[in-house]
């Protein structure tokens, strides 16, 4: 991963057909990595925009309908590298082994669970599957924790831009740079930054210091206007 824009797409918002079209559009734009969010009734890491969207999207969501769409995209040779972002309970209830078995055959490469910290990784551990854990890190972690997390990662790391929930304003800070430097010293692994990245300008700034920039809240605000508006927004950021 290098210089990558990673859209965060909330599954089933407002419906799965829209999710599918957005994924296809990402592919057309040459986007390689996507973070696909599973809607949850009580999203503790999200600000009001994603929270409101998730509250609606979670009502008739189920993993198997999403899986069908991902398998269909794969059939059409739309091979995005997808990281599923889900809160712990929907994943736990679906079954973690189930998840790994079913979703690894659908281009899902990563799993990110914001309410399962590295300390509780046992819950996610299963043998024989190809999906990798993406851990979230932040600039307040003690260096011993950071070292453990980084050495045990083998896909990419998700660095939160600030302490708080999604959708606030990002401030370019030296501490982000120094956290990335610390990570790279431990292991040569990509670092993507998320939270508060709103527009092309933010993306450019972030890609100066990190390997990936995750953009979520702004995309949902555009999607609230229309699907075309969301597509347009992605076009402008990419091109």
């Amino acid at each position: 991963m290098k210089n990558e824009i990673i859209p965060y797409i909330l599954a089933n918002y407002p419906d799965l057909q829209t999710t599918k079209e957005l994924l296809i559009h990402c592919h057309k734009l040459g986007i390689k990595y996507v973070e696909l969010g599973i809607p949850f009734s009580d999203p503790s890491a999200d600000g009001p925009v994603i929270q409101n969207a998730a509250t609606k999207a979670c009502i008739n969501f189920n993993f198997d309908n999403l899986l069908a769409i991902l398998l269909d995209l794969k059939k059409q040779n739309i091979n995005l590298e997808i990281t599923i972002m889900t809160y712990a309970n929907p994943l736990y209830i679906y079954g973690i082994s189930n998840f790994y078995t079913n979703f690894s055959s659908a281009n899902v490469k990563g799993l990110l669970v914001p309410d399962i910290p590295f300390e509780e990784r046992k819950v996610l551990t299963r043998k024989n599957h190809s999906i990798k854990n993406v851990w979230m890190i932040s600039d307040n972690l003690p260096s011993a924790s950071l070292k453990k997390i980084v050495s045990n990662s083998n896909f990419y790391l998700y660095l939160v831009a600030y302490l708080g929930t999604t959708g606030k304003n990002i401030q370019q800070s030296d501490s982000l740079k120094s956290t990335i430097a610390q990570v790279k010293k431990i292991k040569d692994i990509p670092v993507a930054i998320g939270f508060g990245i709103k527009d092309k300008n933010d993306v450019t700034n972030i890609l100066n210091i990190a390997d990936g920039a995750i953009i979520g809240t702004s995309l949902i605000i555009e999607l609230d206007k229309s699907l075309n508006s969301a597509k347009e927004f992605l076009n402008n950021i990419i091109l």
Partner: peptide, 15 residues
């Protein structure tokens, strides 16, 4: 039991 919260809150729980 356990500590199922954001990684960013782990230092606060340790403290």
């Amino acid at each position: 039991g356990g500590q199922f919260l954001s990684q960013s809150l782990m230092p606060a729980l340790d403290e």
